[in-house]
């Protein structure tokens, strides 16, 4: 581990020189900071937690916090990770801001790369696997959503109706709908087969940063939760034809909502925000059921374990914490608790 870190640092410096290129001034040495956590995903069996960081994805054992493998080869920050529904593939996305997006597909059991490709005209912000495992959807700062065939890496569709950066993506559990959240203050619902836009949910008053579909077990049908710069949780219900109806809203935080996640039973919803709070809600009433400890920095990624017992929270300052979903207690894990700085 120590060795790999040193190698990473050496690599890092080479790149700095490379990019600074024509400059005569030597680049300032970077303060040793721990790379931000910007994406989290549990494997479907709960045995693995993928952690997106700068130029790498850590695969760790959520029970011990031990890093089992590190997936490398990325150009930049990894901004989205998702396991295929069967758990046999892991997709991780990122890319260079202002330049391009990249998608890398791995076999998580072996820690090997299956396939990688570039796309988009800016970095990818979010990725989602279709429930049937046959499509990968990526959203980008370039305002588009692209659908890919994971078996070949070929682009299937480009969805273009957003007028500003797209920040989040989610498939409905039955795979019939794809929802996207954008800085243009809307959530759009698409038919992922035809690429047709079915509806636009315009209830948010500012950029929408995060989006999550309630799991299939949720009682009142297709439920979608979104949150963003208007500090508000919006809960929508989608009809058979993808029309959205707002069920309820609540100004839930004192600053922009950054991440949102549904518990597997659909009875809890976790949100994190720029106010550095981490809250758990009853999505049916938007009554707050638990406030977790105030975070020292923004929590940029949230994920519930498949058994619903844990909530993982990844922060901008590089820390990763795992909380009991029921009691809100932080799980002590020496391997990931160490001070990042």
């Amino acid at each position: 581990m120590k060795l790999s870190l040193s190698i990473a640092l050496v690599l890092l410096h080479t790149t700095v020189f490379f990019i600074a290129g024509e400059s005569q001034v030597s680049p300032p040495p970077a303060k040793r900071v721990r790379a931000a956590v910007s994406a989290l995903a549990f494997s479907p069996d709960g045995a693995m937690l993928a952690v997106g960081r700068y130029r790498e994805v850590e695969l760790l054992d959520p029970a011990s916090g031990q890093v089992k493998a590190t997936l490398r080869g990325f150009e930049n920050q990894v901004r989205g990770v998702a396991f295929s529904p069967d758990g046999r593939q892991l997709v991780a996305v990122g890319g260079n801001p202002g330049q391009f997006g990249e998608v890398r597909l791995f076999d998580p059991s072996k820690g090997t790369e299956i396939r990688a490709w570039r796309g988009h005209r800016d970095h990818v912000t979010s990725v989602a696997y279709a429930p049937d495992g046959r499509t990968i959807a990526t959203a980008s700062y370039d305002r588009t959503i692209r659908l890919w065939n994971p078996a070949t890496g070929t682009e299937l569709q480009t969805l273009r109706d957003h007028t500003d950066a797209v920040f989040a993506l989610a498939y409905s559990p039955d795979g019939k709908f794809l929802a996207s959240a954008s800085a243009d203050r809307t959530v759009k619902v698409w038919d992922p087969l035809t690429g047709r836009r079915l509806s636009t949910l315009g209830d948010a008053l500012d950029a929408v940063n995060a989006l999550a579909f309630a799991p299939a077990s949720a009682k009142d049908g297709r439920i979608l939760a979104g949150g963003g710069a208007d500090r508000t949780i919006h809960i929508w219900q989608l009809s058979e034809n993808g029309e959205g109806k707002r069920l309820r809203s609540l100004i839930a935080h004192e600053d922009a909502i950054v991440a949102i996640a549904y518990a597997p039973d659909g009875l809890s919803l976790a949100t994190s925000a720029g106010d550095r709070s981490l809250r758990i809600w009853n999505p049916a009433t938007l009554v707050e059921t638990r406030t977790l400890e105030t975070q020292p920095d923004w929590v940029q990624a949230l994920a519930f374990s498949p058994d619903g017992r844990w909530v993982a929270a990844g922060r901008f300052d590089g820390a990763l914490s795992i909380y009991g979903a029921m009691n809100g207690q932080k799980r002590r894990m020496a391997s990931i608790d160490k001070d990042p700085r």
Binding site: L12, T15, V16, I19, A20, S23, P27, P28, A30, K31, V33, A35, A36, S38, Y54, R55, N76, Q77, R79, N96, P97, G98, Q99, H123, T125, Y141, A165, F167, D255, A256, G274, W298, Q300, F316
Partner: peptide, 30 residues
């Protein structure tokens, strides 16, 4: 917050500072 945190820290790169969008854009590297 806008410069460092918003849009998942897209604008500055703490790991490789000279690759920050905040520097690449106004110098027209991008």
């Amino acid at each position: 917050n806008v410069m460092t945190r918003q849009t998942a820290g897209r604008r500055i790169n703490l790991m490789e500072p000279t690759r920050s969008l905040l520097l690449l854009k106004p110098t027209m590297k991008i």
